[in-house]
Design a protein around this nucleic acid. Structure first.
Lengths: 154, 154
DNA sequence: ACAGTTAAGGTCAGTAATAGTCAAAGAAAG
DNA sequence: CTTTCTTTGACTATTACTGACCTTAACTGT
């Protein structure tokens, strides 16, 4: 189950886990070969799943000896980082940004898959019951729930 | 007897029963095919019978490899009273009503003083940032936070 | 140095595969 | 007969994947 993109994502995350310093360097063409797909599929995975918002930095170089470097950034203390993420939520929050934030916190190990699902479900239920201002309500709900979780687990 | 929607509901519930961890993943189009109906019928069944209030979490993804995932989360008997209390919160919630709900739950031993303070703080923070519809936001926030707490403690 | 060749990676638009929404029509219940 | 629930389908939105074409860097022979 899961799409090709999901598998490539998992593969890269495994590599990051096994790496020394949460950063890896790989060859786009080789990786594409491993999964028997076109090289641009790798770009697709990187663009959709390894964004800065989710806590990843991707660098690359073309030409001979080219490479793609992926790092899972972790500057500060996880909790501080999470709190800053929450502060960064403004007065509105799209579904997409919510997903990025949840994915980010899950990658940091601060949220379990079950917690993510519960949050999604609650937010969906609540926001489906109003016709206007869904993004505003979502911002409040996500901030509230995540703040509660972070606060009561620390 | 029973409508098509009833049969689909029963079918999904059977699948959940037979599943490992009370959660299943299915394809909307395939399921619609099984019952020879239009795909949107599935959405109708999900929207009317598999709500969070009834203890179901529904997630989905569109696009290639899309899916619908349904999980049944059940709360312990002690908590059904609390869940009913939550259902009773309508689309608006005044501060007074919120206070009486919190007091009630604290008396039942379902909320600690610390949790009550935390909830009050979060609700106050969030509702102070908007000028209109405070009671509407409060209803959503309290429902969300209490549902989360009840669910994750059972 | 320079030009040409080779070896990477990047972009973008198009296609396919899903699921969601909404309003209108139909059926059932009161 | 009116109201509520069910069913349908046309239209919309999202996600995945591919391939043709573009850009950049290193190497190589003269």
């Amino acid at each position: 189950m899961g799409t090709l993109a999901d598998h490539i994502e998992a593969y890269i995350k495994r590599m990051l886990q096994n790496s020394e310093n949460r950063s890896i360097e790989l060859s786009r063409a080789q990786l594409a070969d491993v999964f028997s797909c076109v090289p641009s599929q790798i770009n697709y995975v990187l663009a959709t799943r390894f964004t800065l918002e989710r806590g990843y930095i991707v660098e690359s170089r073309r030409g001979g000896g080219g490479y793609i470097r992926i790092a899972h950034v972790q500057v500060e203390d996880d909790l501080t980082h999470a709190v800053n993420l929450l502060k960064g939520i403004g007065s509105q929050l799209s579904e997409q940004r919510m997903e990025s934030i949840l994915a980010h916190l899950r990658d940091l190990g601060l949220l379990s898959p079950h917690q993510c699902r519960l949050i999604r479900g609650i937010v969906q239920q609540e926001s489906s019951s109003i016709s206007q201002g869904k993004d505003v309500l979502r911002a409040s709900l996500v901030r509230a729930l995540l703040f509660y979780i972070i606060e009561s687990e620390s």
